[in-house]
């Protein structure tokens, strides 16, 4: 039983560490803000969720202490991580930061132009 618990904990924590390192590499290697926000919001959220689940399993299976705060933290991160990435890239598009020059398709640009024309801003 302890061996099985150890294997579960090691699996979750190593997957989380892998995704966090991948996040850092993506932040340093990607060319513009939107791809960086993509890397940071998705893989960092998954990595931290895996690590918190591993810590929860450790305290539950090894020390016999059921801790619902970690589960609340997992739920909160699962909701707020992608929302933070989305809202940050949306506001920086509205603030006028251009995408990478290799971007093929830009769906949001004409939509924002139309919205500004309808509302009579600028």
């Amino acid at each position: 039983m302890t061996i099985l618990a150890n294997i579960l904990i090691v699996f979750f924590i190593s997957v989380g560490v892998l995704f966090i390192v991948v996040t850092a590499i993506g932040l340093i290697r990607f060319p513009d803000l939107y791809t960086r926000a993509h890397a940071a919001s998705k893989s960092a959220t998954l990595g931290v969720m895996c690590i918190l689940i591993g810590v929860f399993l450790y305290f539950w299976l090894i020390e016999g202490h059921f801790n619902p705060r970690i589960l609340l933290g997992v739920l909160f991160l699962f909701i707020t991580g992608p929302v933070g990435g989305h809202i940050m890239s949306r506001s920086s598009y509205i603030a006028g930061i251009k995408p990478w020059k290799g971007t093929v398709k830009d769906d949001l640009g004409p939509e924002i132009e139309r919205m500004k024309k309808e509302q009579g801003i600028k």
Binding site: I20, V48, I51, V55, M88, S92, A95
Partner: peptide, 22 residues
């Protein structure tokens, strides 16, 4: 740009959070 720094600081906060768990 400034949103780059904000996203990177958010990622640093998330890293610190998992470091606290470990």
């Amino acid at each position: 740009t400034m949103p780059d720094r904000a996203i990177a600081l958010d990622t640093i906060g998330v890293n610190l959070l998992s470091a606290i768990a470990i």
